[in-house]
């Protein structure tokens, strides 16, 4: 069961997922508690034009920087828009998502063949993660962890009791921006390697699944990390086995996501049993 991972590219893929597991477990807990599922989904789409512009301007090296700029820009725009009362926050999120993504599509569609760009954006290239990408992810992961540690207590306060946090003198807008930037950094760290499909799942599913088992934030975060690592390992192995032994082209990103969702579904009965127990 570890044999395939002795191949360098499989080992790197696993290392990439392990790094993401470390940060996505805790971050997904905040995404869950603050109901930022849609914002996370939007961020995975809005980095696209940044990546395209970065590629045009500076080749492969520019992609990272372009995505980073676009993600941070989206984090700011979403924070500002969702505070304005005139347009409801979900509609604002939807419009930012579609507009930014469309800009990306316009940029690539000027070139003759853009379908493969889109495809790699969706699926990422998990199996071709380079040592340099691993290093980038590691650096971003460290930044995210530090940002989480600094902001955790305040963000929990704001999540639980926004009026109380404001009364205690915190600037709610800055706390919200802090969390949006953290999510944006996770997206940038992950999207090139694992694609949008997987990033969205990593930000939403782990905490939702962990919530079935526990209602303590710390436990949910740890459990989320374990679930991602487990799904990552099993998913890579599954797609490896499927394509090698059975000749089925199972993309690794898809199989990791589907395993995560399977965990979620398997844990639903646990939730039902727990809430039934709490009632009597």
């Amino acid at each position: 069961m570890i044999e395939p991972f002795q191949l360098p590219f499989m080992g790197r893929a696993l290392a990439e997922i392990a790094l993401l597991a470390l940060i996505c477990g805790p971050v997904s807990v905040f995404v869950y508690a603050r109901r930022l599922s849609f914002v996370s989904d939007a961020l995975t789409h809005t980095v696209f034009p940044g990546a395209v512009i970065g590629f045009v301007a500076g080749g492969l090296e520019g992609v990272f920087l372009g995505a980073l700029v676009a993600a941070l820009l989206t984090a700011v725009v979403l924070t500002v828009l969702t505070r304005g009362a005139r347009i409801s926050d979900d509609a604002a999120t939807a419009v930012v998502l579609t507009a930014m993504f469309s800009i990306g599509v316009v940029l690539v569609s000027r070139r003759s063949s853009y379908t493969s760009d889109l495809t790699s954006f969706l699926f990422g290239r998990l199996l071709t993660v380079t040592p340099q990408q691993l290093a980038e992810t590691a650096v971003l992961a460290a930044v995210v962890l530090v940002a989480l540690l600094i902001g955790a207590r305040v963000m929990i306060f704001r999540t639980f009791d926004p009026a109380g946090a404001a009364a205690a003198g915190y600037r709610i807008a800055w706390i919200d921006l802090w969390l949006n930037v953290i999510v944006a950094l996770v997206v940038v760290a992950a999207v090139r390697a694992v694609g949008t499909i997987l990033v969205v799942a990593l930000l939403i599913v782990p905490a939702a699944a962990a919530r079935m088992v526990s209602d303590r934030l710390a436990v949910m975060a740890v459990l989320g990390t374990v679930l991602i690592a487990g799904a990552g390992y099993a998913g890579l192995l599954l797609s490896w086995t499927a394509s090698l032994e059975y000749g089925v082209a199972l993309t690794s990103a898809s199989s990791v996501v589907l395993l995560l969702v399977a965990f979620y579904l398997l844990l639903i009965p646990v939730r039902l049993i727990r809430s039934a127990g709490a009632r009597t």
Binding site: Y32, R35, S37, F38, S40, D41, L122, F123, I197, L198, V200, A201, I204, V205, A207, A208, R211, L250, T251, A253, S254, S255, V257, L258, L260, V261, Y264
Partner: peptide, 16 residues
């Protein structure tokens, strides 16, 4: 969260 899970699941399944 459940809406998000359905989104990821549908996307991944379709892509697979």
């Amino acid at each position: 969260a459940a809406t998000g899970v359905l989104l990821s699941a549908g996307f991944a399944l379709g892509a697979a």
